[in-house]
Each structure stands twice: as structure tokens, then as C-alpha cells.
């Protein structure tokens, strides 16, 4: 069996190099995915963050990658979503009214409330629902999801209101924060996901 390779989807809006660099630091092989054909031989899929909801969805649809992602996530294949990548899994977002998301998760991303600085930019905590120790990671978001779907274990954080910090199920991890920018904590999360796939 050949060594595993993570396919990192080029959305046209993402911080692609940061994601690739994080995997390179842990010695994991990656390939940039521009079109469906690039998915041949890819057993682990990464949907990176950064971007506006509407622009990123349009980029995925234009290259038929939306169906490919949805099929793999629903089949339980190894998958990592980061920041906007998590929100794209939902039905939609207040950021881009009228744009349909991938619909793997129920609900829509809602704007963070007034009374706190939005976007949230910086280091905040996240805590899994199992009550394990909170950990501190880097966020860059103006919108957040209220819940996950069936079968996903949620982690929560708070900025103005509580929202989903991450969702996980075996071999699949979807983070509102940026593990690739979260120093050693983020590296450990990525390594754990890689080992679990």
C-alpha cells in the first residue's frame, strides 16, 4: 500500500500555503486538488478555510467539487474541514444570503452578535462535549454554527454567544478555528486526525 496523501482543495480564496506547510511539518504528503480528476488516489480530503461563503461555494460548484466533497463526507471517508470549510458543510450562511451550502450539516451559519468585536480574530478556547480540558486555538470568523448534525461530537467556544468550535466523528474533523495556525496545539490536533484516518 502506498503512503497516504491528503488532497487539499483549492477554493481560490484560501490560505493554501499555510495548510500545506502544516502537513509538511508533520511529514504528511499533500496534493492540491483543482478538479474532480485530481481526487484519483486521494484517500484523505481537506477543505481549507478563508473566503466568503458565496465566493467559495461558487468556486466549488464551477468545478463540480461540491458533489465530490458531499459524497465523501457522507460516506464517512477521512475528511478535515477548516473554518469556512466547516460552514460550507451547512445549509447556508447569513454571509451570503441565497447561496446554498453543501447541506451535510443542518442549519445556517449566523453572524456573531453586536457588543463584541466582529470578526473574532485571535486565540480563544474550545472544549469538547466530553468535558476534556479546554484548549486554545486561533480563530478568524464573523459567523458561527449553532449545532452539529447527528453523529458528530461538538466542541464549543464563546465570542458574544456560544457557537460550534469543532465537530468530529471517526476519521472526520471540522474546525471553526484554524489548526494550521494554532501552533503546537494545532499541530497535535492535525497529527491526531491523521493517525485516526
Amino acid at each position: 500500500m502506498s503512503a497516504p496523501v491528503a488532497g487539499v482543495i483549492r477554493t481560490g480564496t484560501a490560505n493554501l500555503a499555510s495548510v500545506l506547510a502544516a502537513f509538511a511539518r508533520m511529514g504528511a504528503a499533500t496534493r492540491v486538488v483543482d478538479r474532480v480528476a485530481d481526487l484519483d488516489g486521494i484517500d484523505r480530503l481537506v477543505l481549507p478555510g478563508v473566503g466568503a461563503f458565496g465566493a467559495a461555494m461558487a468556486g466549488l460548484r464551477a468545478r463540480n467539487l461540491d458533489r465530490a466533497i458531499t459524497d465523501r463526507v457522507q460516506a464517512g471517508a477521512p475528511f478535515l474541514a477548516i473554518c469556512l470549510g466547516l460552514q460550507l458543510l451547512a445549509e447556508g450562511s447569513e454571509e451570503s444570503p441565497g447561496v446554498t451550502g453543501l447541506g451535510v450539516l443542518p442549519g445556517r451559519a449566523r453572524r456573531l452578535p453586536e457588543g463584541v468585536r466582529v470578526p473574532q480574530l485571535g486565540w480563544n478556547t474550545a472544549q469538547w462535549a466530553d468535558g476534556s480540558e479546554p484548549f486554545t486555538v486561533w480563530y478568524a470568523n464573523s459567523y458561527g454554527l449553532d449545532g452539529g448534525g447527528t453523529g458528530w461530537e461538538p466542541a464549543h467556544t464563546t465570542h458574544g454567544r456560544p457557537f460550534i468550535a469543532a465537530l468530529r466523528r471517526p476519521g472526520q474533523l471540522a474546525c471553526q478555528f484554524h489548526p494550521e495556525l494554532s501552533g503546537e496545539t494545532g499541530a497535535r490536533l492535525l497529527e491526531a486526525w491523521w493517525a485516526e484516518c
Binding site: 478563508v50 461563503f53 470578526p119 480574530l121 470568523n141 464573523s142
Partner: peptide, 8 residues
């Protein structure tokens, strides 16, 4: 902002 989001 329309393409990359305000947070970027």
C-alpha cells in the same frame, strides 16, 4: 471582502 471574507 466579497471574495476572501472580512476576517481576511
Amino acid at each position: 471582502a466579497t471574495r476572501f471574507g472580512s476576517q481576511c
